[in-house]
């Protein structure tokens, strides 16, 4: 009967309704509550700003990223310190650091969103499936998760990338394929808990299909935790990508912030031309910190929320 439920017309309609308001409404509602907290709101706006940079950064760049800069005397501005024309200085090859930084925002944002998205999707799917279906499925999925936990991150990344070929996207793929593990475990635990609530039992007793229960009841209730892991995932993905780039196993031709640091290091001028690596390093740090703190804010909010519900229960 569940299968029939799922294909009948009114349910597809219900499906659209969900996308229309159920999840979206909860998401917007949650976001609004979070933004009431000033610290969290600050991190949120930093993240919005960085995403914005990712979109418009390349357009704002005053120079081309591979456009060698010359001084008035016609010499190559090799590793020139910040000046009015080049507020963040230039690189060893005479490229404008600010321009590279602005252009580099895009791959960083893409890494974050794509990596975080992969982590979220895999982690949530595995966590919910294991938690809700249970039995052998759960055992297999969770043993697999344990196995992934045992995989050392950087060496595996290097092996995988040499296998998939060095490239910007393949490095993101590798990140996503490993880092979902933490989310999966926690979301499974949450699913197990939610599954025990009377409202899920009532829905089952009324004949709700498994699909319906997962989409309408489990998913919205694990969503806060999933978002927390999305935020962490974005941060980790950016960080890991920077590390992989730095180690030279990600494409050096995509001018991400990680690549900038690596180039600075490889040039041997890192200590003299501090402006070259400092700003991208700082930006990576700020981005990652903001995602973590944003996730933390969300988590605080959710726990405060559920505590107040518990307090209600006790009072009654």
């Amino acid at each position: 009967m569940p299968a029939r439920d799922a294909v009948s017309l009114p349910n597809t309609e219900a499906f659209e309704n969900i996308a229309d308001h159920h999840i979206v409404r909860n998401f917007v509602g949650g976001l609004r509550m979070m933004l009431n907290d000033r610290t969290t709101a600050a991190y949120f706006w930093i993240l919005v700003g960085i995403t914005f940079l990712g979109v418009v950064g390349p357009m704002l760049a005053p120079y081309g990223i591979e456009q060698t800069q010359y001084s008035e005397t016609g010499q190559i501005l090799s590793a020139a310190p910040p000046s009015i024309n080049h507020p963040l200085g230039t690189t060893f090859a005479g490229y404008d650091v600010l321009s590279r930084l602005l252009v580099g925002a895009r791959p960083t944002v893409i890494t974050g969103l794509l990596g975080g998205g992969l982590i979220l999707t895999i982690g949530t799917s595995i966590g919910i499936t294991a938690g809700y279906v249970g039995g052998r499925t759960e055992t297999i999925l969770m043993r697999f998760t344990d196995f992934v936990y045992g995989v050392p991150l950087i060496p595996f990344g290097i092996v995988m990338i040499t296998f998939l070929g060095v490239g910007f996207l393949s490095s993101i793929l590798v990140i996503g394929l490993i880092l979902w593990r933490g989310g999966a475990r926690v979301i499974r635990a949450q699913t197990l808990q939610i599954k025990q609530y009377p409202f899920v039992k009532v829905a089952k007793a009324t004949g709700a299909s498994r699909r319906r229960i997962i989409i309408k009841h489990i998913l919205p209730n694990v969503a806060p935790m999933a978002i927390f892991f999305l935020a962490l995932g974005v941060g980790y993905a950016i960080m890991l990508q920077a590390s992989l780039t730095f180690l030279g196993v990600a494409s050096p031709f995509t001018p991400s912030w990680g690549v900038m640091i690596r180039n600075a290091f490889n040039s041997g001028y890192m200590s003299q031309a501090w402006w070259w690596s400092l700003t991208p390093g700082l930006l990576i740090g700020i981005t990652v910190l903001s995602t973590f703190m944003f996730g933390r804010g969300y988590e605080d909010l959710i726990t405060a929320d559920s505590e107040s519900v518990e307090a209600d229960t006790v009072a009654a």
Binding site: N26, Y197, P198, F199, H217, P220
Partner: peptide
């Protein structure tokens, strides 16, 4: 069910 606090989906 007994428990009114958990028998409605808090998100609905």
């Amino acid at each position: 069910f007994q428990d009114p606090f958990n028998s409605l989906d808090p998100k609905m």
